[in-house]
Design a protein around this nucleic acid. Structure first.
Lengths: 186, 186
DNA sequence: GTCTATACCGTGATAGAC
DNA sequence: GTCTATCACGGTATAGAC
């Protein structure tokens, strides 16, 4: 019967992608609890039941939507400088999946676990480049400093950080983070 | 007819107090959306309808539960040192009302507004003790640093901060915050 | 296989019995 | 004044029509 414009598998793939995009956007905007299956389906222009059909549950949809690819995770080999490069990403074009995770990390247990994992990995990398017995602790404080700034900027949208260029923030934070680096530098 | 053990006004006052305590605890533990009127009532050992009767709505209950007394708000006259004193409070015995507010600040609009207000006041106080045209920005970064540490410690409960004494954290953070203070000291 | 219709539950909130 | 019964709503999930 002639060629179809879209095969079924192709349609399915596109619908899934649209749902995931809509889910990421909504989770990032209002968090896990306030984001609804019906709302996500509406944004993706699909039937609400389809979302359940594809992903099984809201929780599984959330997991697939927010999982950050390890490649996209910030590395920290050059320590502070690279961390501030990371900051640029964090402050500018932080992927929506990360925003969605961060938005829900205080209220949704699953998101909290994910946050602990991601932060833990970053702390590990940082601590690996540092010496001293409290290296992990200092690495954690550096990571949490960036987390605080990111929360204030991206999620709370404090007026004080409105429209401040990333370079300015990096410039101001550099000495502060270096102070946590300890005696050793990279 | 003789004296009653408890007058009605007294009973009412005690019930209200128990409800507010339970509300603070639940809001702090699971956030605004997951805390339910019924759950709060059960914890306070009162009828759910009573909560509505007393407070009108869940939102009003939240407001009354989380409102932080201005006296309890951290001051910052001696700048870094006092801020680190503040940190002690933040890390040790942060009042449950503040925890409840922080827990919900990323997902509940009302809590977000409250957080912006409290953080803004702290930034104002800090900036008042600093000079330079970017004083407010640096003050904001200092405040967000402490916010990040508090979130990581109190809400995400990162392993890296488990059981670390406040003095240790203050010691490690002091140079970092001083670096944001800028050329002027208090 | 895809979607329509609906069941079912728990929520905040209300009205009215006691 | 207190509480039982119920409402309307919105959420997840499912059964069955196409």
């Amino acid at each position: 019967m002639g060629e179809n414009v879209l095969t079924r598998a192709e349609r399915r793939r596109r619908s899934e992608a649209r749902i995931l995009d809509a889910a990421r956007a909504l989770f990032a905007e209002v968090g896990y609890e306030r984001a609804t299956i019906r709302g996500i389906a509406k944004a993706a222009e699909v039937d609400p039941a389809l979302v359940m059909q594809y992903f099984g549950s809201k929780q599984e949809l959330f997991q697939q939507a927010v999982q950050v690819s390890p490649a996209a995770e910030p590395g920290a080999e050059e320590l502070v400088e690279h961390l501030l490069g990371t900051l640029n990403v964090k402050l500018g074009e932080l992927p929506q999946s990360s925003l969605a995770m961060m938005r829900s990390m205080l209220t949704h247990p699953e998101a909290a676990a994910s946050a602990r994992e991601v932060l833990g990995r970053q702390i590990d990398r940082l601590a690996g480049s540092m010496t001293g017995d409290d290296a992990r602790l200092r690495a954690a404080l550096m990571t949490l400093t960036l987390l605080g700034v990111t929360v204030g900027h991206q999620l709370l949208e404090l007026d004080e950080l409105r429209g401040v260029p990333q370079e300015e923030l990096a410039r101001l934070l550099r000495p502060s983070l270096r102070a946590l680096t300890g005696p050793d530098v990279s």
